[in-house]
Design a binder for these strands. Structure first.
Lengths: 221, 221
DNA sequence: TCAAGGACTGAAATCCAGTTCACTTCATAT
DNA sequence: ATATGAAGTGAACTGGATTTCAGTCCTTGA
């Protein structure tokens, strides 16, 4: 025997795998999932087409993993806010605002991850995360109802609508392209206000509060 | 000369063209755009595969036309309501309710038309109609503001959110599958209430009113 | 009845992106 | 140095879908 999987090799393999996943993110952020071919991804990762298949069994699984990695990260960020301190509605406002700011900043990639047409297999993964985000908002709504901050309502249906409103307002095709200065445009304040009104919250706080929050530790990229 | 395009032929051609477009609607309503192949559409229309190409230059253009026909019809239905009589908010409630009822009734086809993955070329047409629906709601919001029924707001952003909420709540993957008895489920009332609260309307009317409206003349299928 | 010209057909050509694999390169242990 | 076996490569293969087209069928006017 003369070949051994040394520590060094092990690390290189892990790095390369990671690089390929990140390349998907990069390519999808540029041309979208629709036009992201394996060859492009491979080129972006600095490897040959065939190499991709030494790490992933199929395009669908690679893309699903890339989507999961990205969505999980975003979910973590928002979950930290949603599980934080303060009244349910204050947390919901913050959660929506954080989600919105991040989505607008990475408009194209957010669209690819959340809304762009993909293969059915990838859609399964996307659906998992959509459910997770929906569940997160649903919990906040339920807490708000329990706390007397919100009127009784079908929180499952409401949270679905809420998520849809966020998506369409922020990154859907009807959304204004405000990538350059999302904060100043007022779009986010408008959407936050829309969401809070929609669930029946009494408008109580001035907009822009989240901008003064300290950075979220442990989840930034 | 011995061949002439008689009236009879002219009509048969028009009928067949129409039949092909309708076949797309039928097939897409069953298996979705993703699995709707030209062969299937041809079979559904009762013609051979090649015949489809005597009427349409490409699959994309055929599908785009089918999508346009369907969307235009729905747009007409909702426009009649939106341009009808009554206060802006009363009309908005009716418009939303009609849109919702129809979307839930034809869940699968609605998904295909509004959200399902398609070729980029078809997406262009889809976007046009999405803008049209957005514009329709935007107008109602503007009228509501002018009439003092709604607080001032960015109606472009709000209408986008409104549309997104409708889509996600009614036909998105998070939406409950209530195809069997949409009325009884209360889903539609929930969504209507969500939308009206979201734009800042004061809840004033009892739910279910639209059910007592007389049929919309001239736009039913 | 028949010639003419367009409409229809469906098998075959074409296209296209994902996937494979024979070959090359590289890292390791002797 | 060199043998070994895995990692990397990219041109070729594949399969499934769209699109084409040579041949057939229809409708019409003489």
């Amino acid at each position: 025997m003369a070949y051994r999987r040394t520590q060094q090799i092990e690390e290189r393999l892990a790095d390369r795998r990671q690089a390929i996943v990140k390349a998907v993110r990069r390519v999808a952020g540029e041309v979208g999932f629709r036009d992201a071919q394996i060859g492009m991804v491979a080129a972006a990762a600095g490897v040959a087409t065939g190499t991709v298949y030494r790490y992933f069994p199929s395009k669908a699984q690679l893309f699903a993993e890339a989507l999961a990695a990205n969505s999980q990260h975003e979910l973590n960020v928002v979950t930290v806010i949603a599980d934080g301190e303060g009244s349910p509605m204050a947390r919901m406002e913050d959660a929506i605002r954080v989600f919105a700011v991040r989505a607008v900043k990475a408009h194209r990639i957010a669209y690819a991850m959340i809304a762009e047409p993909v293969h059915a297999e990838v859609d399964v993964t996307r659906l998992e995360y959509r459910r997770a985000f929906g569940g997160l908002f649903q919990r906040l709504i339920d807490e708000g109802i329990a706390a007397g901050e919100l009127p009784a309502q079908d929180s499952a249906a409401t949270s679905a609508c809420l998520f849809g409103a966020l998506i369409e307002g922020l990154i859907g095709p009807l959304a204004p392209d405000t990538a350059q200065s999302p904060q100043e445009s007022g779009l986010i304040d408008t959407i936050v206000a829309f969401c809070l009104r929609a669930v029946g919250a009494v408008p109580a706080r001035s907009p822009g509060r989240i901008a003064r929050l300290r950075p979220i530790s442990g989840v930034s990229r």
